[in-house]
Design a protein around this nucleic acid. Structure first.
Length: 448
RNA sequence: GUGGGUAUAGCUCAGUGGUAGAGCGCCGGACUGUGGCUCCGGAAGUCGCGGGUUCGAACCCCGUUACCCACCCCA
């Protein structure tokens, strides 16, 4: 029987859980500080809720659940696993419209499933940490998203991330001004999105392969030939976009929105992080306005992404409600933090503060009594179950990374003491039994 | 879905046709009141799976499965 979990999924052992909970704790704290409130939604949705929301590629990657019973052999699906947290939110907003505040800000940390081929930092089951702000078209909320993501990453110890920002309407305007017909926009965006990977010549090849005319291809390349990704100054790309789309009213206003976002962000933790990236496209089809992606140098994919989707809720409700959101990819953050050794020491410590050793079989009752006393002092306490020789018990405690062991031998019992040994320093102290818990707790507080 | 690579002990890997190996880990002992250091000993492998070539295959050939890397797409 094979014991490996299905490809693209993982079991989380205690060390993994500690790392995950550390990151989730920071994410939740920051999100709540920005006024986002938690919701959860089911692991699966009616399939029609999901289909047609993510684009052609997305449709293929949805995990479908077969109908049960007599319909099973037809292979027909009526349910599907959640593909992201944004579409379920849109459904929730449409369903509970009159119970939700005018400006609804929610966060949601749950797994999603994609029928992708697994790769480094890419899983078929993974957690997203979403924040979304419903009900406002203001660029102020887009900036709050960028700000909270920056604060999360900053607190986790990231100092080299950038927030790439672009605008769907600005992209549309750019392509229209270059002479790319509307029906080729999706293809053209896919090609342009690869600019930093395959270069100008590659994009040119890709565009013509996708049937974009020479003239339009040339016009696109003219614009993008000077575009440098991740350039710190935002004025240059904004100026160039503005100039290129000046005859296009919607495009010009989109560029103005981008400029507002850059300016507002200066007063937030996102300050200095934003890079206007005219080639950023993003795959999901529901985006309508500003789009964003979070990148670090040592990861091919992104740590997170998001954007404005002003008419997704309308697909459920019948009339549009503006919305914008962003997600952080939990496992991508953990992959980079693990590789870089960014977890603080207390996360690496095990789940036990002190182990009570077992002196001999006769003292078992005393060992559990001591464990109880130490637990009453708010310590996490394990009791060694067998009367093995002390060396073996110590070795076990050290291998579990337990910082302290407590020993009550015949001598200690006679004096009403506990011998407390710090396994990290090797230092051993005899303390009155009533003081033992406080002694250990204060040592833990002093040096993690 | 496309291309490339890998598969040998719990882990990391060596082994280019002739007796299955190392380091780490694990267990025991030196050490019946003390882990890490040292020394001694020990357990542990259908060499991914199936077929073929050969007197003989971990090694060569064919197939297959799993995993890894890159691409596509994305968190």
């Amino acid at each position: 029987m094979k014991t490996r979990p299905p490809s693209g999924t993982r079991d989380f052992l205690p060390d993994d859980i500690r790392r995950r909970e550390h990151v989730i704790g920071v994410v939740r704290t920051v999100y709540e500080r920005y006024g986002f409130e938690p919701i959860e939604t089911p692991a699966f949705e009616n399939i029609e809720t999901l289909l047609g929301k993510y684009g052609e590629e997305g449709n293929k990657l949805i995990f479908k659940i077969l109908k049960r019973g007599e319909h099973e052999r037809t292979g027909e699906a009526d349910l599907a696993l959640r593909y992201d947290l944004t579409v379920p939110l849109a459904r929730v907003v449409a369903q509970y419209q009159n119970q939700l505040p005018k400006f609804f800000k929610r966060y949601q940390i749950q797994p999603v499933w994609r029928a992708d081929r697994p790769a480094r930092g890419r899983f078929r089951e993974f957690f997203q940490c979403d924040i979304d702000a419903i009900g406002s078209t203001s660029t102020l909320v887009d900036v709050e998203l960028l700000s909270s993501a920056s604060e999360v990453l900053g607190r986790l110890g990231f100092h080299d991330f950038v927030l790439r920002v672009n605008h769907r309407r600005a992209l549309t305007a750019l392509l229209e001004c270059a002479g790319v017909p509307m029906e080729q926009h999706t293809d053209a965006l896919i090609a342009l999105d690869k600019l930093d990977k395959i270069g100008l010549a590659g994009v040119e090849q890709e565009l013509s392969a996708r049937g974009v005319e020479i003239e339009a291809t040339k016009a696109c390349l003219d614009f993008f030939s000077d575009a440098r990704r991740d350039e710190p100054s935002q004025d240059v790309p904004l100026q160039r976009m503005r100039e290129f789309v000046k005859s296009h009213a919607a495009g010009a206003s989109a560029v103005d929105e981008l400029r507002e976002i850059v300016q507002l962000a200066e007063a937030t933790p996102a300050q200095g992080r934003i890079r206007i990236d005219p080639s950023l496209a993003r795959g999901l089809s529901y985006y309508t306005g500003a789009i964003m992606e979070i990148a670090v140098p040592d990861l091919a994919g992104s740590l997170g992404g998001g954007g404005r989707y002003d008419n997704l809720i309308g697909m459920f409700l019948g009339h549009d409600v503006p919305a914008t959101g962003l997600t952080l990819g939990l496992e991508r953050i953990i992959v980079v933090m693990t590789e870089r050794g960014m977890f603080p020491p207390e996360v690496g410590r095990g789940g036990v503060d002190v182990m009570v050793t077992l002196w001999n079989v006769e003292s078992r009752a005393d060992a559990v009594a001591l464990a109880r006393e130490l637990r009453q002092g708010e310590l996490r306490v394990d009791v060694y179950p067998d009367a093995d020789r002390l060396g073996k018990q110590f070795k076990y405690a050290a291998s579990r990374r337990m910082p302290f062991v407590a020993i009550v031998g015949d001598d200690e019992r006679a004096r009403g003491e506990v011998a407390v040994k710090d396994l990290r320093s090797g230092e051993q102290t005899a303390v009155p039994r009533a003081e033992a818990a406080r002694f250990i707790a204060s040592r833990l507080a002093n040096n993690g």
